Amino acid sequence: MKKLIFLFILLSICSFANSAFAKSIAVIVHAENPTETLTKKQLIDLYMGRYVAFSDKQDAQPLDTFTPENLRTLFYKRLVNMPLSRVNAYWSRVRFTGRATPPEIQQSEQAVLESVANNPSAIGYVFSESLTQQNKQGIKIIMELYE
C-alpha cells in the first residue's frame, strides 16, 4: 500500500513538473511595432544586452517578469539554456562594466502586457495561455518559445 501511495505521489509531481515545462512562452511587442518576427539570436542579443534596438533601429526595452510559475526561469532556460543564477551572474558582470542595463523587471504577466501595450519600444514575454482576446489588444506575438 505504501508503495502505491508513493508511486501516485511521484507520478503527480512528474505530471505537474511536465505541464509547467510544456507551456509555451509568447514573446510580445506593441501592436504598432514594425517588427513582425525575430530570430532566436536576435532575441538573445536583446535580452542579454548586446543590442539595444530592433532590426529597424527602433529602441528596444526588454521586460522581465516574476510569477509564481517561474516564467522568468523557463524563459532563460529556453532562450540561452542557462539557469537563472547564471543569467543573474552575467548581468552582475555586465552592469559593473557599464556596457548595458538588464531588462526592466515587472511584477506580473499582467504588468508586462500593460507595459508592452503602452510602450512601442517594449518587448516582453508571457505564458501563451495567459493571452486572452481582452489582453491581446495593443500587442502582437512575434515569437513563441517551446520546450
Results as ranks from 00 to 15, higher is better:
R93M: 13
T97P: 00
D59T: 06
R99Q: 15
W91K: 08
E69T: 14
W91G: 01
S85N: 15
E104V: 12
A60G: 09
D56G: 06
P68L: 08
P68M: 04
L79T: 03
R86C: 00
T65P: 07
R50T: 08
V87R: 01
R78N: 12
V87N: 09
Y90N: 01
R78I: 09
D59I: 06
F75C: 03
F66N: 02
K57M: 14
R99T: 09
P83E: 07
Q61S: 15
L79R: 04
R99K: 13
T101D: 14
T65K: 02
N70R: 10
R95N: 10
R99S: 12
S85F: 15
V80W: 02
D64W: 03
R50S: 05
P62H: 11
R50Q: 13
F96G: 00
R50V: 15
W91L: 07
S55E: 14
L71R: 03
A89D: 13
P103M: 00
R50H: 15
N81W: 04
Y76M: 03
F75I: 02
P62A: 07
R50C: 04
D59G: 08
T101V: 07
D56E: 10
I105V: 15
Q58C: 03
L74C: 07
P102F: 00
T97R: 12
V87Q: 03
F66S: 11
Q61A: 12
R86H: 08
A89W: 06
R99N: 10
S92V: 03
Y51F: 10
T65W: 03
R93A: 12
W91R: 07
R86D: 11
T65A: 14
P102W: 00
K57C: 06
N70A: 07
R86S: 12
Y76V: 01
Q58Y: 04
N81H: 11
G98T: 01
Q58H: 13
G98C: 01
